[in-house]
């Protein structure tokens, strides 16, 4: 009986590891190498300075073509900005509002409650400006790709100057090592000194890629730190509770032959 129970429980663990793993391995593009990220592991947290650098990269590089529609300026509190800083950042953007009493739409400076405005008015406009490819929204990018952050980092650093010999690269496309099919419409977005960091961090392509990936992980999972912290408490509580329940169970069953 005990053997059966153990086998069955081991099986339950195996099925989750097994099928979850195989479902994710589907696809024929190279697997991006695993990177070290500050938020990994049971106790990993975000590095606020890195998130702010990543935000800088987003603002100066990505935001030209990509939207970030699930993030409001007020959310930037999560990466360590205070209220005044957030108000200042929001005010840099023009937000379309209205209609006013005359029935007209008008632009006004952004406030903390506004969401990041999208660079294009609609998908058709986005496609028209980008050779037919729509730049995807970045809010959930790190959750919406297999190997999330490793893929995003791999993609941003995975451009080759020239396609390998014999590869038929379409006009206006770029060769990327990790993009499915290798032909990507996005020109290499990062270059050294693309953004000037105020904290003295070297502004290399790799550093930019690392920072923007961290920022996008935060936009995808802003609850991560709260989730893990609560999870620790919940699981510690459950371990103690379960141990006590086991003790009570032993005591109650002590005199029963079973």
């Amino acid at each position: 009986m005990r053997k059966f129970a153990l086998t069955a429980i081991a099986t339950a663990f195996a099925v989750t590891a097994f099928t979850g793993g195989t479902a994710k391995a589907a696809g024929d593009s190279p697997v991006p190498p695993a990177q070290e990220w500050s938020w990994q592991g049971l106790f990993g947290t975000y590095d606020r300075a890195q998130l702010q650098r990543g935000f800088q990269v987003f603002k100066n590089v990505c935001a030209g073509c990509h939207s970030l529609r699930f993030i409001a300026f007020r959310n930037l509190e999560g990466i360590g900005f205070n209220e005044d800083q957030i108000k200042a950042i929001a005010a840099e953007y023009d937000i379309e509002d209205g209609p006013n009493d005359d029935g007209d739409m008008f632009d006004r400076p952004g406030i903390a409650a506004d969401y990041f405005p999208s660079p294009f008015p609609n998908e058709k406009a986005a496609a028209a400006s980008n050779g037919g490819a729509i730049p995807p929204d970045l809010s959930l990018m790190n959750k919406a790709r297999v190997n999330g952050p490793d893929y995003v980092f791999g993609l941003l650093t995975g451009y080759e100057d020239e396609a390998p010999e014999g590869f038929d690269l379409a006009d206006g496309k770029y060769y990327n090592h990790y993009f499915p099919g290798h032909q990507i419409a996005m020109a290499p977005p990062l270059y050294d000194e693309a953004v000037e960091y105020t904290d003295g961090t070297p502004a290399t392509v790799e550093q930019h890629a690392r920072d923007i990936t961290a920022f996008l992980n935060w936009t995808a999972q802003p609850e991560l730190e709260e989730r893990k912290a609560l999870g620790m408490k919940v699981i510690l509580f459950l371990i103690v509770l379960t141990a006590m329940l086991y003790a009570v169970k032993r005591k109650i069953w002590r005199d029963v032959e079973h």
Binding site: T242, L245, Y246, I252
Partner: peptide, 29 residues
């Protein structure tokens, strides 16, 4: 009591997913 003890063990397993690997069983798409 035996079911409660089992529930405790199960909740630890369940919580491990909810708090530490919430998207593991899902599909990124």
């Amino acid at each position: 009591i035996k079911d409660l003890y089992g529930l405790g063990v199960f909740l630890i397993f369940f919580s491990a997913f909810v708090f530490f690997a919430p998207d593991y069983l899902g599909h990124p798409d």
